[in-house]
């Protein structure tokens, strides 16, 4: 099963370290420019969506042929900080009554599940999307939710994992592409990759 592990200063894809010169948000931008590109909407996204998009792109680049335009793939993600990073940015635009200019472009990202939508839009996925906010990383809970998703016969595989963004330079992600028949997608496997 393919997987991606991103920390604020490192990226590992299926066990191989992706060489980067930067950390934090600059690292994500570097990876976008070097390995993805061609999707200017990336620059408009909040930090959580940028993180989720980079993780999903690195994950899906391993898939051959890359699956698009399908109802059979779900996107189910988890984190702890919800959309707090962007919430703070939005609050900054309305904090000062004398400088009160609420930003529509910031406001639209003040929900964590926007990242599942961004990944689905990018890949033309029409399956289930779900974003669950947990009080801490919990592989068993994540596994349970994904297994429930597979009870729907329409769902054959799931992009899933932990995509957490405290602020634009403090984040982590751990993402998998799990199919309904994968026997190695277990809570132990999720923990193993998360702890790499």
């Amino acid at each position: 099963m393919n997987w991606v592990r991103i920390r604020k200063d490192s990226i590992v894809v299926n066990g191989d370290v992706l060489s980067t010169e930067n950390t934090g948000q600059a690292m994500l931008k570097e990876v976008y420019k070097k390995h993805i590109g061609g999707y200017p909407k990336f620059f408009k996204m909040d930090a959580l969506c940028k993180l989720g998009l980079i993780a999903s792109e690195l994950l899906l680049q391993l898939e051959s042929p890359r699956v698009t335009d399908t109802e059979q793939r779900a996107v189910i993600l988890f984190n702890r900080a919800s959309s707090l990073s962007d919430d703070r940015n939005y609050q900054a635009t309305i904090q000062d009554a004398g400088n009160f200019f609420p930003s529509p472009a910031v406001f639209v990202y003040t929900l964590p599940n926007i990242v599942t939508g961004e990944i689905s839009i990018r890949n033309k996925y029409y399956g289930e999307t779900l974003f669950v906010v947990l009080d801490h990383f919990n592989a068993q809970e994540m596994f349970n939710v994904v297994r429930e998703a597979f009870l729907d016969p329409m769902t054959s595989d799931v992009i899933t994992g932990w995509v957490d963004c405290e602020n634009k330079d403090d984040f982590e992600a751990c993402m998998f592409l799990a199919s309904a028949v994968d026997q190695d997608f277990t809570p132990e496997f999720i923990n193993e990759i998360y702890n790499k």
Binding site: P40, F101, S103, P104, A105, V108
Partner: peptide
Amino acid sequence: LGLDSIDALELIVLLER
């Protein structure tokens, strides 16, 4: 430029600010 409706709102805010 590939601008969308949210961009239009952001430009309106820009003009006011």
